[in-house]
């Protein structure tokens, strides 16, 4: 295995394009090094992007949104007070990934590129309407996060393409998001199911809603029909139980070592309902 530490994104992409064999980008390394250890993926070339200037920065754009560098760690996100206040659901999704040790290293982009349907930070990004900046040999492009996962362990990224940053839209008043997952322990588990909800309100009524379900299909999925249940409502108990049933209905989970399909279908509704309630309260400014 050859290790590269380029000092610019262009150099990183150039190395990738000129290298043969399995080429992987390295940011936090919390997935890549595990794959290396257990022997599931042994890259021939590893391109460490952490020494590229700006890659570990969070910046506020002129349009009021945030740009998060590809190697920004979970701990950096949590420590960013403004970002955490505006996008608590997105930040808590990332914060749920692994231990304090993992948080020092793991990144949103890494979690996304790993392609797991159970990735904790991805539902929050999709619910937020986030996009990624992708660099390839022909230039840069912006792609919605929801278009990146393509199946279990796979993404729509082409060979050599590099995500350089994540872009969050501007946050307005009376908006709120939340992410909740279900795990058997209190920490250190992979989500059995997860759900992110992002809401905008007007006079207490939900005007737009995004609902994203994790670990109940081959990839993290947008649940449009479930979100539709919420729009135009004030989230009373009837609505919540309809919403819950809808989430369970559209979930298409598999049975595996982390839970049976039946159990996942059961609890995705419960978790989604709790996440919706939390997002709604946040949009009202309750916490």
């Amino acid at each position: 295995m050859q290790y590269h530490s380029p000092s610019s994104f262009n150099e990183a992409v150039a190395i990738s394009n000129s290298s043969s064999g399995l080429v992987k980008y390295l940011a936090g390394g919390t997935d890549v090094l595990v794959q290396l250890k257990i022997g599931t993926k042994s890259p021939d070339h590893l391109i460490d992007i952490k020494n590229i200037p700006g890659v570990r920065e969070i910046s506020l754009r002129d349009d009021g949104g945030y740009t998060i560098g590809a190697a920004v760690s979970g701990a950096q996100l949590t420590d960013h007070k403004e970002l955490s206040k505006k996008w608590p659901g997105l930040v808590e999704g990332m914060e749920l990934v692994g231990s304090a040790q993992i948080q020092s290293r793991a990144t949103l982009v890494g979690n996304l590129c790993n392609g797991s349907p159970a990735a904790d930070s991805v539902p929050g990004m999709i619910a937020a309407g986030a996009s990624v900046s992708i660099l390839n040999s022909s230039g840069t492009k912006d792609v919605l996060v929801e278009d990146i996962p393509s199946g279990p362990g796979s993404t729509s990224l082409k060979n050599g393409e590099l995500i350089t940053a994540i872009n969050l839209p501007k946050r307005n008043d009376y908006e709120g998001d939340a992410y909740l997952r279900f795990i058997p322990r209190t920490e250190m588990d992979i989500a059995v199911v997860g759900c992110a909800v992002n809401l905008s309100l007007e006079n207490g009524f939900i005007t737009t809603a995004k609902v994203v379900l994790g670990a109940v299909g081959p990839k993290v999925m947008l649940a449009h029909s479930a979100a539709d249940c919420l729009v135009g409502t004030k989230l009373d108990d009837n609505i919540l139980s309809r919403f819950s049933a809808k989430c369970s209905q559209i979930a298409k989970p598999i049975s595996d070592k982390r839970g049976s399909a039946e159990f996942r279908k059961d609890i995705i509704g419960v978790i989604a309902q709790r996440a919706a309630r939390k997002a709604y309260d946040r949009a009202l400014g309750k916490y």
Partner: peptide
């Protein structure tokens, strides 16, 4: 792996 052989952690 300890990821899925779930021994109790401190917060449990």
């Amino acid at each position: 792996a300890f990821l899925d052989y779930r021994v109790p952690v401190a917060s449990d």
